[in-house]
Structures are given as structure tokens and as C-alpha cells.
């Protein structure tokens, strides 16, 4: 071993010398390329954040580009008093938390049950659920269905349809199949029933994959825009994303609204902290994006693993 390793080193060294020029150029270009791509991806977020905390007058002139100027938090204070925003935040947080908890538990339980060979007609039911991934009744039939089920203008339209997710079930099932069966058998020997096995044996051993499922569904819930658009007309049930969308479309009337709401405060406030349409949009955008930015790096390490499992099957 030692000898061969030495030989490798000896052999490689001269070649490296010859190619070093092309190599270095490549390395530099490569680093520059990724620096640029990263900048393009990250700068817009930075731009929104610095503009939401800077002098609003400068901001509306487009002067805030690299560093925030004349910091203030007035935008956030004002925006949080906007009609509908706190409620929309509650709706968004609510659907994210409840929806994620439901689908994680359901995926874990279904994934587990579908690994049990003794289950009655296992293959049939498994296929019946998985196949729903590949067809779709279409927009209008879905709308009529929701109407029939009294789910339009109902908070539960955010939760119920998202509970059984075939892809998540595949992920969990594949993962459970890789856990040694002896664990479950041992628990069963001790007299544990199926529910106990699920909670005591399966759940604790599946945390990586369940974390993956959780982050995916949380992000999907938080970002979902289409379901509010289609099924909800009641303003009380608007999600943050939808509210932001309406804000972008009616920015001018919005700024007026804030000024009116501010009343006496607005008279005192200087132009530097008075809300402009852009300042409101940017501030709400930051409020919408911050949770994602905070949660996401924590779960990042799971992505690769989860996706690989999906690729094996999918």
C-alpha cells in the first residue's frame, strides 16, 4: 500500500507542474463564476432588507444599493398595524404548523403500515394511493369538489387536501424498509401493539426522513398562493403570500391607507419614515421571507439525503 501511494505521488507531481497554468486559470474563473452566481441569487434578498430599514425617501429614489442609510424600524411598526396583516400572519403560521404536523404524522404512519406484510390487501391500497400522484382532475372539478364539501372559504381547505402526499409516503416507506426489522420484532415480542410499535420504535428511528418531509411541506404551506386564489374570497382567510400579492397590485391605495391609519403620527413623522408603496411592499416581503431564511439552513443537511432516496424510487 505504502509503496503504491508513494508511486502515485511521484507520478502525479510532474504532470501537475505541466498543467498548473491551465489549472490555475480554471480555478480562478470557476471561483469568479460561482461568486457571481451567488451574488445574483443573494443580492435581491439583501436589497429588499436594506431598503426596508433605510430612509424611505432615499429608498424611493433608488439610492439604497449596497449599505443601508439612516436606519429606522418605522416601516415595520406601521406595516404591522395594517388591516389584515396580523390575521394573515396567523393564518399562514397556522396552516404551516397544523398542515406540516398532519402530513408528517400521516406520511410516517402510512409509510409504516405499508411496510407491514400482514396488512390486508397491502399492495392494492398502496398502489391506489401512489397512483394519485400521476393524475389530476383539473382546476374546475377540484373547485366544484371543494364547494360540494363546503371547503371554499374554509380554513381546512389549506390542510385536508395536503395530508396524504404520495411522494412523502414513498420516502418514508423506503426509509423504514432500510431499518433492521429485528427492532420491530423485539418490540412485538414484548407485547407492543401496532400503535405502540409505531410511536416507540418507528418514529424515533425515522427522524432524518421525517425532518425532510417536514421542511418540504412547511415550505410548501408557507409559500402556497394558488389555493387562496382559487378557494378563498373571505379576506379573513387570506394567507400572507396572497396579501403580499394584493399589496403589490394596489400599492398606491395602500400607502394612503397607512397614512390614514397613522393619523396624528403621520403628521409628526418626517418624509424619511413616511410609508411609500415601495417601502410597504418591501417590508412585507421581508416579513414573508425571513422565516424561510432562518429555518432553511438548519435543515439543509437533510435535503441531499432525502432527495437521493426520492431519486432511487422516483
Amino acid at each position: 500500500m505504502e509503496i503504491s501511494r508513494n508511486m502515485k505521488k511521484k507520478k502525479r507531481k510532474p504532470k501537475k507542474m505541466i498543467r498548473s497554468k491551465g489549472d490555475t486559470t480554471f480555478t480562478i474563473v470557476n471561483y469568479l463564476f460561482f461568486g457571481l452566481v451567488t451574488l445574483i441569487c443573494a443580492y435581491p434578498f439583501y436589497y429588499l432588507i436594506i431598503n426596508s430599514i433605510s430612509n424611505n425617501e432615499l429608498s424611493s429614489l433608488g439610492e439604497i444599493r449596497f449599505l443601508p442609510k439612516q436606519l429606522h424600524l418605522e416601516n415595520y411598526k406601521q406595516v404591522l398595524q395594517l388591516d389584515g396583516l396580523p390575521l394573515a400572519a396567523i393564518v399562514s403560521v397556522g396552516r404551516t404548523v397544523i398542515g406540516t404536523a398532519c402530513t408528517v404524522l400521516a406520511s410516517a404512519f402510512l409509510g409504516f403500515i405499508f411496510t407491514q406484510e400482514k396488512m390486508w390487501r397491502r399492495q392494492f391500497w398502496y398502489r391506489a394511493i401512489i397512483i394519485t400522484m400521476y393524475f389530476n382532475a383539473g382546476l374546475i372539478p377540484m373547485f366544484i369538489t371543494m364547494k360540494t364539501l363546503h371547503l371554499t372559504n374554509n380554513f381546512w381547505v389549506y390542510i385536508l387536501p395536503a395530508i396524504v402526499q404520495p411522494f412523502n409516503i414513498i420516502l418514508v416507506k423506503t426509509y423504514i424498509e432500510s431499518i433492521p426489522k429485528s427492532l420491530q420484532e423485539a418490540a412485538e415480542m414484548d407485547g407492543a401493539n401496532i400503535v405502540q410499535v409505531f410511536f416507540k420504535v418507528v418514529l424515533p428511528n425515522c427522524t432524518p426522513i421525517l425532518a425532510t418531509v417536514a421542511i418540504f411541506s412547511a415550505v410548501a404551506q408557507w409559500n402556497s398562493f394558488q389555493d387562496t386564489l382559487i378557494y378563498i374570497t373571505d379576506q379573513k382567510l387570506y394567507s400572507l403570500q396572497y396579501l403580499l400579492y394584493t399589496y403589490i397590485n394596489q400599492a398606491n391605495s395602500l400607502a394612503q391607507m397607512v397614512r390614514n391609519a397613522g393619523g396624528s403620527v403621520a403628521n409628526v413623522a418626517s418624509a424619511a419614515t413616511t410609508q411609500t408603496p415601495t417601502s410597504i411592499q418591501m417590508t412585507v416581503s421581508v416579513i414573508v421571507v425571513l422565516p424561510i431564511m432562518f429555518i432553511y439552513p438548519m435543515f439543509q443537511k437533510h435535503f441531499g439525503k432525502g432527495i437521493m432516496l426520492g431519486a432511487v424510487k422516483g
Binding site: V37, T38, C41, A42, P44, F45, Y47, L48, V219, W222, N223, S224, F225, Q241, Y242, L244, Y245, I248, Q281, M282, S285, V288, V289, I292, M293, Y296, Q300, F303
Partner: peptide
């Protein structure tokens, strides 16, 4: 940083 945009909604992309 390059995967971050995947996790924001299209509404936010439009805002940007």
C-alpha cells in the same frame, strides 16, 4: 445561497 431562491414563493419572486 443559490438554493435559497427555490424556497421562496413566486409572489416574492415577482416582488423582487
Amino acid at each position: 445561497l443559490t438554493t435559497l431562491p427555490n424556497f421562496i414563493s413566486w409572489v416574492l419572486v415577482y416582488m423582487i
